[in-house]
Nucleic acid binder design. Structure first.
Lengths: 264, 264
DNA sequence: GAACCGCGTTTCGATGAGTGAAACGTTCCG
DNA sequence: CGGAACGTTTCACTCATCGAAACGCGGTTC
């Protein structure tokens, strides 16, 4: 899918090479990278060499793979780092109480993006992983985003296409509308085996200091085992507490961590 | 700090702009970025615009900050992702047992780099964070790396300079040698308030299929509360189990996920 | 209110970094 | 042994990139 125009600028071309790594790719050979980016082999080769020199890519037997530098840079991204660090204690509390999968998610287009995940062996094994995403309309957190965070969420989601992940996924616009209405009324989101068979979830919204929904916390586990209505108050409490902390933080100087040890 | 040569290649210049973000920087204004990279304002300005268009940077009130795309790319870095995902269950087990800070670390030059951290409210609050680093000679995990993973670790560490983080940090080459000998003999690493006052740790090595030390698992907490000698077997057991799993995985086809659908 | 500053943004002609077709070197087939 | 598939190197042309200079704007000074 060497889709779209090849950018003229060197920088954009180089970055496109990074974007060529998708999902579960590990090693990609030159040929594939050239194909996917639409760049001539020779050009790709030269740019790749520069990316390797920088550390964003590593050479391997079979070709190239994403490298260390990118992981480190990624950990520095502030919007997420702040949110994750503030949220972790609350996620951990929920985990201690339930021993189920606890997620912190943010909206990303019409997807839910998992920023953080706390779970253990006793938790239901689940597809989600940090950095992974699922369509919003099939997840508890995503429904919150469609209802509160994404402008005109219902329409946006419908236009993007209501993918069916399981027989229970809500793929009819009318039903989704009803569901989002329910979310608005109740204030939390629920997912009944809509993303994975046998797996359910409850989610509550996290607000920033302007009372905008910027994230969501959820608990996910076996549909049979989980009593969603009973868990909802716990998730909501955690989400509220986090919201309050975020509001407080951005009242006083927000960003600076006082004792943050030098990191090199 | 505009150190070193300004690279001539556009790509390298652009990437250098990303590297200009250090440690706890949040927003950097154009002026600072131009200064740090040594690029003329006009040039920096243009390249920054391209990085923003790509998503690696975001514009803010005060200037530029690292963006979403980088976080997502970072989560895809395979070497770390595989290791982290394999390790998580074992880290979680250790956490369940001890309720202390559990770390997964890898060597990075003469530092220990924390890839993953599992902790809770009951755990000792600690400086470490995912993606953060500490000098190897001051940490339990780091000593393992100096003893087993870094070629000529003792000398390398000494040449890099034995920083003192606390009064107990080992900063005399002779003492460090003795300590590393002890590590080799015992097979695990220990840290007695050498990185942070009042905080101790035990670490055990994780081997790859070639029996090379590639990572380490550690438990960290209040020096008073933690009985390191008692915890050592637990950490070692977890590390061995993880090592065995890694060996097994790389015996049968390691990398390829069978169902990993073609990616676009 | 005029003169000044620091900062981000835009302009534009000269120029050398970047380009990519083609040739080359390997390795792995049948 | 001939050929296919892939990574690597070459090199003369050319267009994207460069950056000094000019501009615009908000704030501060006198």
């Amino acid at each position: 899918m060497s889709s779209a125009e090849i950018p003229r600028s060197v920088l954009a071309r180089g970055l496109r090479l990074l974007d060529a790594f998708r999902a579960d790719d590990v090693d990609l050979p030159l040929r594939v990278l050239a194909e996917r980016t639409g760049l001539p082999k020779a050009t790709a080769h030269r740019l790749l060499a520069e990316l390797v020199a920088w550390g964003g890519l590593e050479r391997t037997q079979g070709g190239y793979r994403l490298g260390m530098s990118l992981f480190l840079l990624g950990q520095r991204v502030p919007r997420h780092r702040e949110l994750r660090e503030a949220a972790l204690p609350y996620l951990e509390d929920l985990y201690e109480i339930t021993h189920e999968n606890v997620h912190l998610a943010v909206p990303s287009g019409t997807d839910t993006l998992f920023l953080e995940k706390v779970s253990g062996r006793r938790s239901t094994p689940i597809v989600s992983r940090v950095g992974g995403r699922l369509p919003a309309h099939c997840t508890a957190t995503g429904k919150l985003f469609l209802a509160f965070a994404v402008p005109d969420g219902l329409r946006t989601a419908c236009e993007a296409g209501l993918t069916r992940l399981t027989p229970r996924s809500i793929v009819m616009p009318g039903l989704l509308r009803a569901e989002l209405d329910r979310v608005v009324r109740q204030g939390h989101g629920i997912n009944h085996e809509e993303a994975e068979i046998g797996v359910s979830a409850v989610a509550a919204p996290v607000f920033d200091h302007r009372r905008q929904v910027i994230a969501a916390i959820s608990i996910t586990g076996w549909a049979q085992r989980l009593d969603l209505e009973r868990l909802a108050p716990a998730v909501r409490t955690a989400a509220s507490a986090l919201s309050r902390e975020l509001a407080r933080d951005s009242a006083n100087g927000t960003l600076r961590l006082p004792g943050s040890a030098g990191t090199t």
